[in-house]
């Protein structure tokens, strides 16, 4: 089992704040935790994987971030404990509408979806259906 946690990974503070309000409206039973780049969330996930019930149900992942971007994180996760890939639903959440990025996301089997910003309540409703 996993906790009712959502990891929101984005370097843009304004987006995180706005998204948190939106998540509060649509997925109110979840707690939202903020991460500014891939490395921060990676360290947290590795730590949590030892007690897998503490892993988040949902990860919303931005692509363009400093230090470790979304693709680099996904590469790292390939060789990370399998619980992370199995138990967490990962959605890419990006402002990029480039087809290359969209295609690249399809090469990762453990990705559940690709959402382009702005994030809407419709997006979150769809995610909620999959989480149930």
């Amino acid at each position: 089992m996993t906790t009712n946690k959502i990891f929101l990974v984005d370097d843009d503070l304004i987006f995180r704040k706005a998204a948190t309000v939106l998540l509060g409206q649509e997925l109110s039973e979840f707690d939202v935790e903020h991460f500014e780049n891939g490395l921060e969330v990676y360290n947290e996930l590795i730590e949590l994987a030892e007690a897998s019930e503490k892993l988040p149900q949902l990860i919303l992942l931005d692509i363009n971030m400093p230090v470790m971007n979304g693709w680099e994180l996904l590469e790292e996760l390939k060789s990370a404990p399998h619980q992370i890939r199995q138990q967490c639903q990962i959605y890419i959440l990006t402002s990029s509408i480039a087809p290359e990025d969209m295609n690249l996301s399809k090469t990762y089997e453990f990705i559940n979806g690709y959402i382009t910003k702005p994030l809407t309540s419709e997006d979150l409703k769809r995610i909620a259906e999959n989480l149930a």
Binding site: I14, A18, V21
Partner: peptide, 18 residues
């Protein structure tokens, strides 16, 4: 155009929508 403009403009549209 794809990233920085869109990330800011999408923030604005998201915030104003909310």
């Amino acid at each position: 155009v794809s990233h920085n403009l869109r990330s800011n403009s999408s923030n604005i549209s998201m915030l104003s929508g909310m």
